[in-house]
């Protein structure tokens, strides 16, 4: 059985950054190949003429969930060694609202803005610049936000434990929800005037 190669000690943590760069390049390539460097495509989710963003991320979530659970069942992956991001509820809600507003206004999320910048899009560059200024201001004023930032700590919480169901059952409902969303999005898209971009 294998775990993640860093946490299992197979590779020194000193190589973390190299892995991050390689994985980041792969992720960026996939984003660009899916057309995510276009703010018009991304903003289509909010106007109902293009749901590719929701479809791609829902597909990624259900494929990864099914893959991890099956590989774990077969004894091929030990995902107890995987890092689970701890939940800080207050900052997650506040951050989510801020990111949502930025997403709808700029047509990018942080990753896609870098993709757009990399392929030479001006709007992506402006968005990236704004994001960088935001990060800088937040870092400089961190002591003001520190209490809020760390409040609502829930530890490494799993959503299926919140509902009190097994991860397998939760994944089943997630798959049903994803397919329902795919069908619903297709119907909405049919009723919206097609936009060329």
């Amino acid at each position: 059985m294998i775990g993640s190669i860093i946490s299992s000690g197979m590779v020194s943590p000193a190589w973390d950054n190299l892995f991050a760069v390689i994985l980041g390049m792969g992720f960026g390539f996939a984003l660009e190949a899916s057309g995510f460097s276009s703010s018009r495509k991304i903003i289509g989710t909010f106007f109902g003429y293009d749901f590719v963003v929701v479809k791609v991320f829902f597909t990624a979530a259900i494929v990864a969930s099914l893959g991890l659970l099956y590989f774990s069942y077969l004894g091929l992956v030990d995902f107890s060694t995987l890092y689970i991001q701890p939940t800080f509820l207050t900052s997650a809600i506040v951050g989510g609202i801020i990111m949502g507003i930025g997403f709808a206004m700029g047509g990018f999320c942080p990753g896609t803005s870098l993709c757009a910048t990399a392929v030479g899009r001006i709007d992506g560059l402006v968005f990236f610049g704004g994001m960088f200024i935001g990060v800088f201001l937040f870092s400089e004023s961190f002591p003001i936000f520190e209490n809020m930032y760390y409040s609502g700590s829930q530890g490494a919480k799993m959503i299926n434990t919140v509902f009190g169901i097994s991860p397998e059952l939760f994944t089943f409902f997630l798959v049903l929800a994803a397919i329902g969303m795919f069908v619903g999005a297709g119907r909405i898209q049919k009723n919206i005037k097609k936009i060329e971009y």
Binding site: A61, L68, S166, P167, L174
Partner: peptide
């Protein structure tokens, strides 16, 4: 104590 040791469903993000 969290009663049931959960198995992870992966998250996503950009």
């Amino acid at each position: 104590v969290i009663r049931k040791a959960p198995k992870a469903a992966a998250g996503g993000g950009c």
